[in-house]
Simulated scan of single mutants.
Amino acid sequence: MTTVGIATGAGRGTGEACARRLADMVDVLLLADRNEAAAAAVAKDLSGYGGKAVAEPFGVDVTDREDLDRLAERVSELGTLRAVTHAESVAPEEAHWRRILEVDFVGTALLAEALRPLATVGTAFVYCASVSPLIAHIVPDPSVAAVLDDPLQEGILDRIRDAIGPAVEDPAWAYPWATYGVHRFARAEAVRLGPVGARACSLSPGAIDTPETRLEAARHESVRQLIQCTPLGRVGQYEEVAAVAAFLVSEEASFVNGVDIVVDGGLCAAVQDD
């Protein structure tokens, strides 16, 4: 049996770090990214590294159903879906609020929809989210939750805006709402996948040493304060997030399902009573 892994956002950052971990866990690894050239560069490097997997770049937009159908078809051609790490995202600093919700939240649901029929015993999904909804203490009322729990309904972005209100048009608020949606989605997906022996979890990094974090820390005192509040006294690294993602899709985590795992150096523990 040929095992297949998928790492989305594999051309850089957390997605690339996850891909490097998965390369030793499956037979064929699809490096999925909107930037296929970046994914191809990672695939070339992995091939030279000598990992277990044959690395194959795959250009895909997670908001495009046709792209995702092609991805699922390629998995079916190759073998059995074993592991998916989903780190494709857009940062609040880089996008309009609608694009943040579309990629980070709706894109997660679209990816799951396309790959769900391929899930079998031992298949594991990890959806990267964020601690931002935990820091922001997001607790929606039932009417908002009902909208978020149906991310593939027609007009979902407008429905979210109507439910939450104009505040969500601020990218700094759209991002925690999008990743909160991922938390909810992962729990629901775990329930859907359980009967076939497959699993799904979300993974929420704290302040990670990214170009975006460095830029925001330089611009905003609030970001610097969050970093300073982290009990470990530093930002995290991509590899530290990827290590946890690799554990969650491994057989060692075979009874871990439907939970959000926080990788934040203790930040949430430090600010939980604020």
Rank of each mutant, 00 (worst) to 15 (best):
R74I: 06
V256E: 04
C201W: 07
Y180P: 02
H220I: 00
V131G: 06
V121R: 12
A37T: 13
D162A: 12
P117F: 13
E88A: 15
V271E: 02
V106S: 05
A17N: 11
L29W: 14
Y49G: 15
A174Q: 12
G51H: 15
P195N: 00
P195R: 01
R99W: 08
V191F: 03
V60C: 08
Y49C: 14
Y175D: 04
E189L: 15
E239D: 13
D141K: 09
A246H: 06
R20D: 08
V126N: 08
L215I: 01
P140T: 09
D170V: 00
Y127W: 13
T3M: 12
A207E: 06
L110S: 11
A188Y: 10
A167C: 04
D69I: 03
W97D: 02
R184I: 02
A198H: 11
V271P: 00
W173N: 09
S204D: 04
P205T: 02
P133A: 06
D24F: 04
E56W: 04
A55S: 14
G48E: 12
L193A: 08
V144E: 11
E216F: 08
E94G: 02
T210Q: 00
L101Y: 03
Q272I: 04
L68V: 06
N257P: 01
L30D: 05
R199K: 11
A207S: 07
L267H: 10
W97I: 05
I227H: 00
E240R: 10
R65Q: 06
R98V: 00
A145T: 12
G236L: 06
A200L: 13
D264Y: 08
T108R: 13
R161M: 10
D158L: 05
R192S: 15
T213K: 00
L29H: 13
L68C: 09
G51L: 13
T108N: 10
G181C: 05
L30V: 10
D260A: 00
S132N: 02
T108Q: 09
D150T: 01
T210A: 01
G11K: 08
V106D: 05
E73I: 01
V244T: 15
P92F: 05
V263N: 10
A129I: 06
A37G: 07
V196K: 03
A243I: 14
R74D: 13
P133N: 03
S143H: 11
V262W: 05
Y49M: 15
E16T: 03
F255W: 04
A32V: 15
L193S: 05
G181D: 04
E216H: 09
T63V: 07
A7Q: 07
A38L: 07
G197F: 10
R65P: 08
A270F: 06
Q225W: 02
I164V: 13
V42E: 15
A83N: 12
A200Q: 15
A243S: 08
R20F: 09
V42M: 11
L232K: 06
G5D: 08
D33C: 08
A178W: 07
A253I: 01
F105L: 03
A207M: 08
L152T: 04
R199D: 04
R199C: 07
I6W: 06
C268N: 11
D260Q: 10
G107A: 01
N35L: 05
I100K: 04
V259L: 07
G15E: 05
A172C: 06
D149N: 03
R234C: 02
P231L: 12
